[in-house]
Amino acid sequence: MKKRTNWRKVTLYSSIIIYLFIIIFPFIWTLITSFKTSGEIMGENALRIIPEVFTWDNYTVLFEKGILGALKTSFIVSMSTTLYIVVVATLASYAISRFHFKGKSLLMGLILAVSMFPQMITVGPIYQLFLNLGWTNSYAVVLPYSTITLPLAVWILVTHFNQIPHGIEEAARIDGASPLQTLVRVIFPLAAPGVFTTGIIVFISAWNEFLLTITLNINREYHTVPVFMSFLKEQFSILWGEVTAATIVVTIPTLIIVLLFQKQIVSGLVSGSIKE
């Protein structure tokens, strides 16, 4: 009997190790390549594990090409999206969770439908609109980001607000608080973990956005990291040294966010999609 559990454990842990290896290997290999010279990357010894010549050149070139600028743009874009989306979604979700009004289920259905739209359907008219308003190549790109992030945020937040007991507001109202005061002073502190989770999920979605930036912000100055990286490709030959170095530089912030907030991310993903 003891032997059987041991075997079970061995299979279990070895499958987990294989799984972890498959997930992590691409990054490790990329990390190794990023320290190789371009001669070695394309040469015969391309598959060597330890670089023959260890070099920082790929990173130096990358910084000259302005990856820091792209990181900054990404950060500005994602941060501002997170801030305004969280405010808008918090207000709306609170109303959906607490107020009684006609057409509430219609509104929720609409929000769900928007989250299902193919993004490509909105891009054409938004491009026209931005062209007419002279908003291309600007941070106004965060406004159409609402199509991707707002439904998600509302969905997660409604779940969270529904978990907060209604009696609390009753008490606040008897004490003479207005709905907005109730939301800000009473509900918000209780909902803060949910709001924070929403913020993280929105931030990551905005950080990963590609289509809107590549169509609306042609100017390099406004390229976010994913678009910046896709342009490393648009050359005669692909410079793998730079691409791999960029992958590493870009993965680091993601890694930090995931390490710090994994609990919130998982709870956000789950409440965004499972508890309907």
Binding site: N208, V250, Q262, I265
Partner: peptide, 24 residues
């Protein structure tokens, strides 16, 4: 550790993952 590792592929931008695999 497993949970953190599982989140990484999901969290990196798709465009970046595409370039990563393009290299591999």
């Amino acid at each position: 550790i497993i949970r953190t590792t599982s989140l990484i592929p999901w969290a990196i931008p798709t465009a970046v993952a595409a370039l990563l695999w393009m290299y591999l």
